[in-house]
């Protein structure tokens, strides 16, 4: 590690500075992880119970699909196990999002309301970084693993043997999906700078998760357009699922998903900057 990254006295070359700040932020993140683990281990029963809650809800969604397929063989071109695979992918992405970002995003309105944001603004690191990654929800990783098991099981029924390229693309697209959920949620949480009661908006985002796990072919018209090109819920899990299930006709959807991710992130950064200007500390 170059010493300049710590002292910052000598003007380093840009490349060094980038590397330096990467190291610095990695260290901060490691410290945040440690804190989160310590905190979670303080409430062990609760930790296990929350995992149980998530598993029950996941099982319930799979039960719904099972009931639907008692009435039909195909929904659009999707067979039963393909939809189970899709549900697994959706749950996987959603749980990783939960693990890294969800709690942090929901707490933003609380920081604004109580004025605690003052302290975070004063810290010598990117405020967005600290707000977004303060806590890690370890239960999310356990649930993501259960989603992987469901995917593997469905893959076996479909006799899928994904190639290395498919697997790598799939994992990258899952990361893209997590970033989309994060950008949209962060943007919605920024609304709390305007109206303090932003909880309803955040709750509303849960309804969007519900669409992400359904086959895209089901939807038509304006609904499909909105949830593809504005809030890309119909791309987030459908595209990676199609990649592993060999249901991808053209690579266009992959490009669209990546483009939407970049767009969502940029817009969320813009909204965040705009919102921050409205911050007038509470209390004090």
């Amino acid at each position: 590690m170059p010493p300049s990254s710590n002292t910052g006295f000598e003007p380093p070359r840009t490349r060094n500075r980038l590397a330096g700040s990467f190291v610095r932020y990695s260290r901060i993140y490691v410290a945040l992880w440690k804190n989160s683990i310590i905190r979670e281990m303080g409430f062990k029963t609760n930790f296990v119970l929350w995992i149980l809650v998530e598993m029950i809800w996941f099982a319930l969604q799979l039960g719904f699909i099972h009931v639907l397929y008692m009435q039909t063989d195909h929904i659009g071109s999707w067979s039963k196990w393909e939809v189970v695979l899709l549900m697994g992918v959706s749950h996987f992405i959603q749980q990783l999002f939960t693990a890294f970002f969800l709690n942090n995003c929901t707490q933003i309105s609380e920081h604004v309301r109580t004025g605690r944001l003052d302290f975070i603004l004063l810290l010598p690191a990117s405020t967005r970084f600290l707000l977004s990654l303060r806590q890690v929800d370890l239960g999310g990783f356990v649930n993501a693993a259960s989603a992987l098991l469901v995917m593997a099981y469905a893959g076996q029924h479909l006799q899928l043997h994904p190639t290395l390229a498919q697997t790598v693309t799939f994992l990258l697209l899952c990361a893209v999906g997590v970033m989309i959920h994060y950008s949209l949620m962060f943007m919605m949480a920024s609304i709390s700078f305007w109206t303090v009661r932003a909880q309803g908006v955040i709750w509303g985002y849960y309804n969007l998760f519900n669409i992400a796990r359904l086959p895209d072919e089901v939807f038509h018209g304006a609904y499909r357009a909105v949830f593809t090109f504005v809030l890309p819920m119909l791309l987030v899990s459908n595209v990676p699922a199609r990649v592993v299930a060999n249901k991808m006709a053209t690579p266009g959807a992959v490009l669209l998903l990546v483009f939407m991710c970049a767009a969502c992130f940029c817009i969320s950064q813009f909204v965040w900057r705009l919102s921050l200007r409205r911050y007038t500390s509470a209390s004090s």
Partner: peptide
């Protein structure tokens, strides 16, 4: 009001789902 409006999103999704199932019959 916001809650009720957001609630219509998954509701429409379920209706789309059933519509697709019925259209195959």
């Amino acid at each position: 009001l916001v809650r009720a409006c957001f609630g219509l999103i998954p509701l429409s999704a379920t209706l789309f789902l059933w519509d697709t199932i019925y259209s195959a019959k």
